[in-house]
Design a protein around this nucleic acid. Sequence first.
DNA 1: TATGTTGTACTCATATCGAGAATGACTCAT
DNA 2: ATGAGTCATTCTCGATATGAGTACAACATA
Lengths: 260, 260
Amino acid sequence: MTDEAFLADYDPSRYPAVAVTVDVVALTIRDGALHVLLVERGEAPFKGRWALPGGFVKVGEENLDQAAARELAEETGLRSPGRVHLEQLATYGDPGRDPRMPVVSVAYLAFGPEMPDPRAGSDASDAAWTPVASLRLSASGAQPPGVTRRLAFDHARILSDGLERARGKLEYTPLATAFLPETFTIPELRAVYECVWDEALHAGNFHRKVLSVPGFVEGTGDTTASGGRKGGPRARLYRAGDARLLHPALLRPATEEDIR
Amino acid sequence: MTDEAFLADYDPSRYPAVAVTVDVVALTIRDGALHVLLVERGEAPFKGRWALPGGFVKVGEENLDQAAARELAEETGLRSPGRVHLEQLATYGDPGRDPRMPVVSVAYLAFGPEMPDPRAGSDASDAAWTPVASLRLSASGAQPPGVTRRLAFDHARILSDGLERARGKLEYTPLATAFLPETFTIPELRAVYECVWDEALHAGNFHRKVLSVPGFVEGTGDTTASGGRKGGPRARLYRAGDARLLHPALLRPATEEDIR
DNA sequence: TATGTTGTACTCATATCGAGAATGACTCAT
DNA sequence: ATGAGTCATTCTCGATATGAGTACAACATA
């Protein structure tokens, strides 16, 4: 930004009326399916429709990361700042994305282990973890059978961008562990990849790969107390290692359509 | 964002005085070195220091991408919207990042082939392509010998984030071609990777790899008119292919420090 | 013409990947 | 208890990718 431009607008009354908000795409895994945290709007516009949790940034008092963490905790009644990974996703500022006024929204992406049901915050009439598969994310494209909901504002696009980011980050960072509790088994880690990528993975190869990437996981020496629900031996327990990047990366099988 | 929060702030006079700007990290390659487009500030604060080009978003009239493209063209006198790749980088909103008032800046990353010298825009006292290596990007860390400049505001951090993004994108997208003209040779493409990554690459292996990734480049059937400056045969010419992702990726050699 | 440079194509050993199968340890229904 | 089915973990094997080095012909320069 240049100085003259600032001086020309230095008088606050001359600013365009812009609101800056944060919206959070909070993802977790429940019952083997990817879920996103949504709140139900109690007022127009989009009354009764579901939206991403979010709110105004207290500009000058907090930074954007703090605002996102505050919204995630405050508006849904989830405290648990502990093991939640939060990162900036992208910023959306198209004219008309809010019918009432110009709004620039900084979207955040949050990954966390299975969390309790949220309570509705002061602003939302309801809040719930919602299966991503039950949402209509684009006008075109195949939709799952059953109930499909359309999100308020441009939140379908934001969620869609967040999912794409999450899918990509699983390839070259150890963030999949952010969806799991402190200790976990390799098959649980594989389940994270499978439900975020929506692809079945080869159990043996996945096992070999995870153990071969330095710093991805480290063994605890323990095993689960019993076998799985449907049988099978006890599994060894691991915790997240100290790697920030997976090298070599754990590439998802790419299709021609992804590439072109 | 929730409805009640909006209603509470519906009166524009109650908005906090937030300015929304775009800043552009425009990268190109000149004389075998990575350069970034900077403008010299003509007024306080940071008068005489260099900064990223940027300016206010005309909220409600244009979207963020358009604002970034406009700033890149307008403030520097570079029109050339043609072959420039522009993508959103991140958003910066820490309190105090501008000493005068709260400012939220949406940063963009631009890649382009070698471009003419900019002329100073209406706001900047000067504008120039500056070698990235000549800039002091962090307080700590090794600095190159010779002139090092410190950027205004938090622009060193933004540039640093932009460089890291660029380095990563070269691995799994064909964006290196955005630094080159319509047709180019494989050694020219290798030079892009080498100067963005700041690492020497094995010529033979790079050649094999580029040709083996589907859709990365396609041959034109032509060759350069003559050999290189210091000799060597004519090189075959290629143009960018239709791939949006490189599969398998062209991974840069990772060091232990990158990973942990 | 001699010399050095370099684009491109090899070779070869090693690492990684995808697919499948073997081995037990476990759960559950009978 | 017992048998059937499930599944964590480890192997094997062929296909593919990678890193390092060599070969050679085409080119610029002196």
